[in-house]
Simulated assay, not measured.
Amino acid sequence: MTTPPTGAHARSAARSVPRLPGVGRLALARTAFEVRVFFRERDAVVFVFAYPILMLAIFATVFGSDEELVPGSGVYFPQYFLPGMVATGVMLSSFQNLAISIAAERDDGTLKRLRSTPLPPTAYFLGKTGQVLVTAGVQTALLLGVAALAFDVPLPTEAGRWWTFAWVFVLGTAAGSVCGVAYSSVPRTGRSASPVVIPVVLVLQFVSGVFFQFNELPTWMQQLASVFPLKWMAQGMRSVFLPDEAAVLEPSGSWQHGPTAAVLVAWLVVGLVVGVRTFRWRRRDDG
Results as ranks from 00 to 15, higher is better:
Arg113Trp: 06
Asp43Asn: 15
Arg277Trp: 14
Gly209Glu: 08
Leu98Ser: 03
Ser116Cys: 05
Thr157His: 08
Ala103Leu: 07
Val178Arg: 00
Ile53Thr: 12
Arg238Ala: 14
Val48Phe: 11
Ala266Gly: 15
Gln235Leu: 11
Val186Ser: 10
Thr6Gly: 14
Thr3Tyr: 09
Gln223Thr: 14
Ala123Phe: 01
Ile102Gly: 05
Met91Asp: 07
Ala8Pro: 08
Gly127Leu: 13
Phe63Val: 06
Asp43Ser: 15
Val201Cys: 13
Thr135Glu: 09
Leu144Cys: 14
Arg25Tyr: 01
Gln223Ala: 15
Val23Asp: 04
Thr135Tyr: 07
Phe212Trp: 14
Leu249Gly: 05
Ala13Arg: 02
Thr164Ala: 06
Phe77Leu: 02
Trp220Thr: 09
Leu20Glu: 09
Trp267Pro: 01
Leu126Val: 03
Lys231Pro: 00
Asp244Ile: 10
Phe47Glu: 04
Asp43His: 08
Ile58Cys: 10
Val132Lys: 06
Ile53Val: 15
Leu92Phe: 15
Gly271Pro: 04
Pro154Asp: 03
Gly180Phe: 07
Met221Tyr: 13
Val45Glu: 05
Ala103Ile: 08
Val146His: 05
Arg284Asn: 13
Phe59Gln: 03
Pro121Gln: 06
Phe211Gln: 06
Val146Lys: 07
Thr260Ala: 06
Val153Trp: 04
Glu250Asp: 06
Ala148Phe: 15
Ser192Glu: 12
Arg115Thr: 01
Ser12His: 05
Gly145Cys: 10
Val227Glu: 01
